[in-house]
Nucleic acid binder design. Structure first.
Length: 422
DNA sequence: TCTGGGGTCCTAGGACCC
DNA sequence: TCTGGGGTCCTAGGACCC
């Protein structure tokens, strides 16, 4: 048996830990630029606001219902995530971190004690971190996801639902809409509905060959998992990323090259740090720019350019230089750019790094030491951006909008809440 | 006026090899 | 007039996830 632990309304719950006055109130956490709803409390969902809705469209509802809207504070959420995962590690034999708010847990518990175990996991995470979670326990990961949905939906489960018999599988799948199955997205669920498949139970009764024909081996894997055959491998140590992207939409259309250049340098800084964190080196970079696809009144332009680095690199200035060169080749004065980004690809490990025959004058060992020194300074508490490359300039601060910020309750000394005023 | 960011995997088709 | 068989690698596009 495997367990799935899923944090309820995670970003909203993080904010509520430090602002308990928001409990039982409608709360929405926004994406970059305060653009879209990315997390909602149950009370906000009940008002009809949906994940992904743009703010300008639900603003009237939010204003008239006293909805608290908060700009995303991802450093806080990341820190809270680590606290949740640390607690899970103490409760399970092994954990697989699946996303910022979800983890699979492995354990050795007798069948009769599974529900009690799940309840205690939920209770302990809540007590240690303040974050409410739902626990699903079942023979496969996809079924554990189904179980966790029931645990979240029905308070009677006390936070944990176990699916451990064929009868329970059948009951649960008959009550699960096909669109709510992990691995079945919008397109596939629409296709399945056209074929008369409404529930997960209808789906597992299809012939597997038919499923494979329609949805390839991925769909077949979901079918097998729902039928009780585990097909999703355990990943106890997460594999290195194969591509790394940093990108942003801007609050307005950007018409000057200099602002874009500073944005690209900021993306290079983020990507350089992430490459070094996993000890990878990139051989290729791609820059893209795009106009506002929602605004039909402005001329549209999308373009991307690729550069190959002289040798595999995790050196922020080297990446930034190549990225600026690529940006220059696709920048067109006539267009207002709404979104831009940088991706590094063809990543290799330290051992796989082959120096260039022609890269004269690059002392990569020296550059590595410089980057390591910068990373060491920037990772000291409270100073994430202490040392920057100068070409970052003012970075993204003037280009993006955050009007409803919350505090860095857990990572900045001056933001820690006072329990009692002195 | 205002619409997010970061990933993975699979497949088909083209280029190329012997 | 008639034009093979078997393979790899890469990329773009489409699907999915959080």
């Amino acid at each position: 048996m495997i367990g799935l632990v899923d944090c309820n309304n995670f970003f909203v719950s993080c904010e509520r830990v430090f602002r308990p006055e928001l409990l039982d109130k409608p709360v929405v956490v926004l994406s970059n630029n305060d653009g879209c709803a990315v997390a909602l409390s149950n009370e906000a969902k009940a008002l009809g606001i949906r994940r992904g809705d743009p703010m300008f469209r639900f603003k009237a509802i939010a204003d008239s219902n006293h909805v608290t809207v908060i700009s995303g504070n991802h450093r806080l959420y990341h820190d809270m995530s680590q606290r949740v995962m640390m607690t899970l590690r103490s409760l399970a034999d092994d954990i697989e971190i699946y996303s910022v708010d979800e983890a699979f847990i492995h354990f050795d518990i007798p069948p009769s004690a599974l529900h009690e175990y799940g309840v205690s996991v939920a209770r302990t995470v809540r007590r240690n971190t303040g974050i409410p979670v739902s626990v699903g326990i079942a023979p496969t990961k996809t079924l554990a996801k189904v179980a966790a949905r029931f645990a979240k939906k029905y308070p009677g489960y006390k936070g944990a639902c176990v699916i451990d018999t064929p009868e329970k599988v059948e009951k649960a799948l008959s009550l699960t809409d096909i669109a709510d199955v992990w691995g079945i997205g919008r397109r596939h669920s629409r296709r399945l509905r056209q074929l008369g498949i409404e529930t997960a139970l209808d789906f597992i009764r299809m012939p597997s060959a038919r499923v494979r024909e329609l949805f390839t081996v991925i769909g077949e894997r979901t079918w097998l998992e729902l039928n009780g055959t585990p097909c999703i491998a355990d990943e106890l140590t997460p594999p290195d990323k194969r591509t790394i992207t940093s990108s942003r939409s801007f609050a307005r259309d950007i018409h000057d090259f200099e602002s874009l250049r500073q944005a690209i340098c900021t993306f290079s800084t983020t990507i350089g740090r992430k490459l070094r964190e996993q000890d990878s080196y990139a051989l290729e970079i791609q820059v893209f720019v795009a106009t506002n696809r929602f605004n039909e009144r402005v001329p549209q332009y999308h373009n991307a350019a690729t550069r190959r680095l002289q040798e595999p690199s995790a050196d922020t200035p080297a990446i930034a230089r190549a990225a600026i060169s690529a940006l220059r080749s696709i920048y067109r004065e006539a267009y207002g750019i709404k979104k831009a980004g940088l991706t590094v690809t063809k990543l290799v490990s330290r051992e796989g790094r082959q120096p260039s025959l022609f890269a004269d004058g690059i002392d990569s060992a020296r550059r590595d030491r410089l980057m390591a020194a910068i990373d060491a300074i920037n990772s000291s508490p409270g100073r994430p951006d202490a040392v920057q490359i100068a070409s970052v300039g003012s970075g993204l601060t003037d280009l993006t909008r955050r009007e409803h910020t919350s505090r860095l309750f857990t990572t900045r000394l001056s933001d820690i809440i006072a329990v009692k005023a002195t």
